[in-house]
Amino acid sequence: MSKSIETPPRLQLEQYLGMQIRRQRLAQELKIAEVARIAGISQGMLSKIENAQVSTSLDTLSRLCDVLGMPMSKLFSQYDQQGSGALLVKANEGLEVVRRGTEKGHTYHLLNHTRGPKKSFEAYMVSMDDASEEFPTFSHPGTEFLHLLEGELVYRHGNQLYAMQAGDSLTFDAEVPHGPEKLVQVPIRLLSIMNYGKD
């Protein structure tokens, strides 16, 4: 049983705003005194804002945004999205999915998810444990990257055969028919990453 880690606490609004202002100021290599002077606030006040030691008015935030050359909407835009940019999948907890090959003794665990209507990539942990099965041929848009973690197999891409041992990687055009040709040593664990690119 895997040990769960508590989700990091959401930043308070003052902490988030201070962090964004400081990040923008440092990105432009501006000194705290310069920004404070142009914004019409004291250097001590700006320091307190950046370190979340004080709540500040929208008027002051608006002046800081003007000095830093960023829209106020950008300052708040990602506050509600904290924590949504990363996904941790613990060992053996990937979502089991059905794909072509599942009925042939392949097990697919999806290791990622992407939000929105378009997927840029998918990552699977593929397990194969029956060396006597015949294997389907796959063909789909994009580029595929395989990394063999355990076992040994011969992989077909078009008319070419590639002998793969644990630790080997293979990258190829996924529109060309491909798939396992022979399982030499089972069990096999294969990391498969499909990159669909951009339209």
Rank of each mutant, 00 (worst) to 15 (best):
Q43I: 08
S62Y: 10
F172W: 04
T143M: 02
T7S: 05
D80F: 15
L190D: 05
E144F: 01
K48L: 09
R156S: 15
S127M: 13
T60N: 13
G69S: 13
R63I: 13
V98A: 11
L87V: 15
P9I: 00
S73K: 12
Y16W: 00
G83S: 14
L68C: 14
Y124N: 02
M164W: 07
L17A: 02
C65R: 10
S73W: 10
Q43T: 07
H109S: 14
I5H: 00
H113D: 04
E150K: 09
Y196F: 01
R25F: 03
V67I: 13
F76H: 13
Q185N: 05
T102H: 07
A166L: 12
E29Q: 09
G83L: 14
A36E: 04
I32L: 12
T107M: 15
I41M: 10
K182S: 11
E6D: 11
V184C: 05
S47T: 03
H157L: 13
V89L: 04
G151V: 14
G18H: 03
L17W: 01
A163S: 12
D173Y: 01
L17T: 08
I49C: 03
Y196T: 03
F121L: 03
N112G: 02
A163Y: 04
L148C: 09
Q160G: 13
F135C: 08
R100Y: 10
Y162L: 06
Q20F: 01
R100W: 06
V154G: 11
V126G: 06
L111W: 08
Y196L: 00
N51R: 06
G69I: 03
G18I: 02
T60K: 09
L161P: 05
N195T: 01
D59W: 09
Q15T: 13
S73D: 14
T107C: 15
T56E: 07
E34L: 01
L111G: 07
A166K: 07
R10T: 00
Q81K: 15
L75G: 10
F145E: 04
L149I: 15
S57N: 01
R25A: 08
K198V: 00
A131I: 04
S127R: 11
D130P: 10
G116I: 02
H178M: 09
T143Q: 08
